[in-house]
Design a protein around this nucleic acid. Structure first.
Length: 407
RNA sequence: GGAUGGAUUCCCGAGUGGCCAAAGGGGACAGACUGUAAAUCUGCUGGCAUUGCCUUCGAAGGUUCGAAUCCUUCUCCAUCCA
């Protein structure tokens, strides 16, 4: 079975421009492909992770990846599939985000001579001369066609600025440029990128009379069609500073029954036969599958050690024992008043409440426990010496734990 | 440039002078039930404080005892015409 067949079996392929040709190139390691990442935040998230995994799989099959960081396209902002305009970022923000992206990516993909390459489209987009650019590629784009692109439908009702409308030209130009200067013959991306990617293959055909190919991967969706990767705290980030390995693990540990096996298939490197077995699991058996999913993904993102730690912590917290490796909250001297601290302050301090009022409501709703004992009194006080002496675990709801450390 | 409609709390959306920190829904969070699942039911959803106070309805001014609601100017958006 070639890599193409495997991708297909894992349910990763959404759309392709020319199936036979792509299969041929990819299975024989003859593809030089690129995937673009726009620096919209200061960390990669799960959506990007899907793309990075694809890169890894294809690289393992002998193909040459180019990771493109969008220091240029990020100046514009991709309107595809969005219902409103992105906030315009400053150049400084964009560049800072680009650096973070580059750093994170190099943990997943091997870069270097003969391996993967990293490029930044700021290098060729930022200094373009508007008129030259327009005269070079403007004639190759049909506004009529662009308006028909499905990724804009929302925006045609709600408003689409010319700035954003021009995004497609930039992405098309990227591909064209990479084709000419890097021998890149294929572009991959999320399924929402389809129109933008076709802009590139079209441009290459018209300008150079050559064929280039595009393939999209299925977006990671829940069975009800909503997007994955959002939590109460926002997105699920790959940066351990923004989403701790424990939280990352928990996120996957808690996916819907109906989604688990599909996610394992799409995102892990486990053999397909093993996954086919899991397809037969039912009911609470699926908890095992959820552990596998959470463990495997945490391992991929944060390494084996962190994955073990997260798993142990989760098992003991939800089993009986007291966990050792759960997130901590450090209490300093000035958090105490007369060597005491109130339960409300503790919750806020631990990040379990956004305000005192929020903390109060959570307590009154019965959602707070200290060492497994429910705290109902919003004025409950805790003694500094006691906290320092005995290990204390603060719990909000069923799944949020923090160990309290007195400094 | 002209005409019309619009901007409300995380999102959608009601509210046209006091009873409005603002209906309803969604989402989020918490409780019950469970399998750390889903569905369901319940609570809760601006901030600070022990009755109360402070900030919020695109922005700035004004009218009024009192404004999300009325007036003026401005900004932004949509639709139609150019």
């Amino acid at each position: 079975m070639g890599i193409y067949e495997e991708l297909k079996a894992r349910g990763l392929i959404a759309q392709v421009t020319d199936e036979d040709e792509i299969r041929e190139l990819v299975n024989n390691g003859k593809a030089t492909f690129y995937i673009g990442f726009d620096p919209t935040a200061d960390s990669l998230h799960v959506g990007h992770f899907m793309a990075l995994l694809l890169m890894k799989r294809l690289q393992a099959a002998g193909n040459k990846p180019i990771a493109l960081v969008g220091g240029g396209t990020g100046m514009i902002g991709d309107p595809s599939g969005r219902s409103d305009m992105r906030r315009m970022m400053t150049v400084e923000e964009i560049d800072a985000n680009c650096r973070k992206f580059q750093k994170q990516m190099s943990r997943f993909i091997e870069f270097g001579p003969g391996k993967a390459q990293m490029v930044n489209n700021a290098d060729w987009l930022r200094n373009l001369n508007f008129l030259d650019f327009m005269r070079e590629i403007g004639p190759e784009f049909s506004v009529n066609e662009m308006l028909r692109a499905r990724c804009y439908v929302n925006r045609l009702e709600k408003g689409l600025s010319f700035l954003e409308f021009s995004y497609m030209l930039m992405q098309g130009y990227d591909f064209y440029n990479l084709y000419k200067n890097y021998g890149c013959n294929m572009e991959f991306g999320g399924d929402d990128q389809w129109s933008n990617m076709l802009a590139g293959t079209e441009l290459i055909r018209r300008k150079l009379g050559k064929d280039a190919y595009a393939m999209t991967i299925t977006l990671l969706l829940k069975h009800d069609g909503t997007k994955m990767g959002k939590t109460s705290g926002g997105a699920v980030w790959l940066d351990p500073e923004k989403t701790s390995p424990y939280d990352f693990y928990q996120y996957w540990r808690n996916v819907d029954d109906e989604d688990v096996v599909g996610f394992i298939r799409k995102m892990t490197f486990l053999p397909l036969e093993e996954i086919d077995e899991m397809d037969k699991w039912k009911g609470s058996q699926l908890n095992r599958a959820k552990e596998i999913l959470a463990y495997e993904l945490t391992k991929l993102v944060h390494g084996e050690e962190e994955a073990e730690k997260a798993q142990d912590a989760a098992r003991s917290m939800f089993g009986k024992g007291i966990a050792t490796d759960i997130p901590q909250t450090v209490l300093k001297d000035d958090d105490f008043k007369d060597d005491k601290i109130g339960i409300i302050q503790l919750l806020v301090k631990a990040g379990f409440a956004t305000s005192n009022g929020d903390a109060r409501r959570t307590i009154q709703g019965g959602g707070v426990r200290v060492n497994e004992t429910q705290v109902k009194d919003i004025y409950a006080q805790f003694d500094k010496a006691e906290l320092a002496k005995n290990e204390t675990v603060l719990q909000k709801g069923k799944k949020n734990f923090k160990k309290l450390i007195v400094e």
